[in-house]
Amino acid sequence: MVILYMIFVVLGVAIFAFVFVSTRRGRAEGGQGAPVEKLERFEPIWGLFVVLLLGVLLAFTIWRAPWFQDQDGDQQVSIEGIQFGFLVQPTSVTTGTPVTFTVRSRDVNHSVGLYDPDEKLILNIEALPGNFQKRTYTFTKPGTYAIRCLEFCGYQHHKMVYPTFQVTES
């Protein structure tokens, strides 16, 4: 994601830099040298090119949206958010077998941000009052994971952390 984003940023900024530098030549030409009609004709082509690029991105990503993922793992974990803590049951799972998290909230919106032992955010599941969500994940890395609330839930939001969710080798 980041690499793709950076490529387009660099490309876009380079094109604009070229455009800005071209104004030196434009000054020498009294602003009369630009192929304005050609540029106008290119406008719809540019629009179609953008549509095509976005279509490709859509095709590659939409089926990977979280709600399309399989929600039935062999291991089950229930997480309930309450201002300002998590009730987690059970508190440990094993690697290699899909784990289904069932997430709910007892009061306001919370979110289960699951961080791996290297502090990388790997899952982000909203906890909704009066409803529940499921998300399945297969752990490959054993260790101590942390659960942090990522949806603002009140004045102790930054203390809503469950620091010791264990993943053991199967």
Binding site: I15, F16, V19, F20, S22, T23, R25, G26, R27, E29, G30, G31, G33, A34, V36, L39, E40, F42, E43, W46, G47, V50, V51, L54, L57, L58, T61, I62, A65
Partner: peptide, 27 residues
Amino acid sequence: QPTTYALVLPSALSLFSIAATIYRSDF
């Protein structure tokens, strides 16, 4: 997702128009 992508078009075409307007102008 596709409807949000559709909103890229006004920005992409506006940036094109602005760049084309500046290109080789006596800016």
